[in-house]
Design a binder for these strands. Structure first.
Lengths: 194, 194
DNA sequence: TTCCTTTCTTAAGATATCTTAATTATTAGT
DNA sequence: ACTAATAATTAAGATATCTTAAGAAAGGAA
């Protein structure tokens, strides 16, 4: 029942698109498997992000440092999520975010040039990413809307119900960072609620 | 030099994709022109959003009402932007957002079923939307990141430089709503800065 | 022009969240 | 199991932003 990373990936693809057997074989060759140790940094701010990456196993986070060198977590990722500094990837500019493994992880990577090649060869892949970005956009918009009209306490409650799997795997101060509040304040919220 | 709405649209498409003449003609037939009066509501919360819409002329806003019936502006749109309650459109659920014309406007609409048809007929259109959503996602992420680590005053300054065209066309309390602050506080910020 | 509606400003007191700093609890390495 | 490092809590005072309420300014319709 333990699937190989590429099988996890293909299974994931097939949840939103149909793909012929020959295309599947082709797609497999385009993605490269890579292991990450806990705390290993996959992308450094300042470097250009040239790959899309799919998490087959483990968990990662994307974060940036503000002027006061304080960390702000932009995204968590666990199995079957994609993580990237997309701005860097899309505009070929230096990344502003770091991407780091929170646990020992396995990812599948594809270089931007290879992916663009694949878009031409396998239209289903372009469809896959069109759908993926639609969903990602909507998810992000919902998150923004949420933080606009809700109190930190409400946002924390929502995070707990929505991302229980993540909450249990990352330290609390990272949850605070993701929610945009200080760890002290999250601690105060928890004291109140629990 | 006054272009017709569909010409504006096709010109817009051609900024990111190539399209054959026959495909262009086909695409034109799929989009429907529609005029909106100032203050007219294009989409009501509670109704399902079934169309994608491109602004050829004028300006619109998307907003929702929170539990206290207070408005929160999610997005402004001017010429060559797309506005929608995408969550509703993508998931076929009732909209949570209203979309309203801020000025007399002209939009081009396409029904979801028609657009899906078009994705199969003209792959360049699928590519167009893949690229569109990539950019939209990144823009939204940048906006969120911004509001996470910046003060309201900084966000207002950025809004002014980035969306000068919009700032000059909408009332100040809408800018406040977009920035997630009260109109009174924005007024205070302005007093300080100017 | 005048009136009515919409938008903007001002100010005082209230609240959410932050900062700092110290203390305790938990985890990881040897 | 012991120590060092990391994470979480507590509390006091500071700050950003909100709420309410009122008045001033600007815009649109007659």
């Amino acid at each position: 029942m333990v699937m190989k990373p590429k099988d996890i990936f293909i299974t994931h693809l097939k949840k939103s698109i149909s793909i012929s057997e020959s295309d599947e074989i082709l797609v497999r060759t385009y993605f490269i498997e890579r292991e990450l140790k806990k705390k290993e940094i996959l992308l450094f701010a300042g470097k250009e992000s040239c790959h899309m990456q799919f998490i087959a196993k483990g968990s990662l986070r994307a974060y940036y440092l503000d002027e006061d060198a304080k960390e702000h977590i932009v995204q968590f990722g666990i199995e079957e999520w994609w993580v990237n500094d997309l701005y860097s990837y899309l505009t070929k500019t230096p990344a502003t975010q770091y991407i780091q493994a929170l646990e020992d992880s396995i990812i599948l990577q594809i270089h931007r040039d290879k992916l663009n090649e694949l878009y031409d060869l396998v239209p289903a892949i372009e469809r896959f990413f069109r759908l993926k970005f639609e969903k990602a956009y909507v998810a992000f918009q919902n998150r923004t809307i949420n933080s606009m009209s809700k109190t930190a306490e409400e946002r924390y409650e929502e995070f707990r119900t929505k991302y229980r799997a993540i909450e249990q795997r990352v330290p609390q101060y990272m949850v605070a960072s993701y929610l945009g509040i200080t760890p002290e304040f999250l601690s105060a919220i928890r004291k109140k609620t629990i």
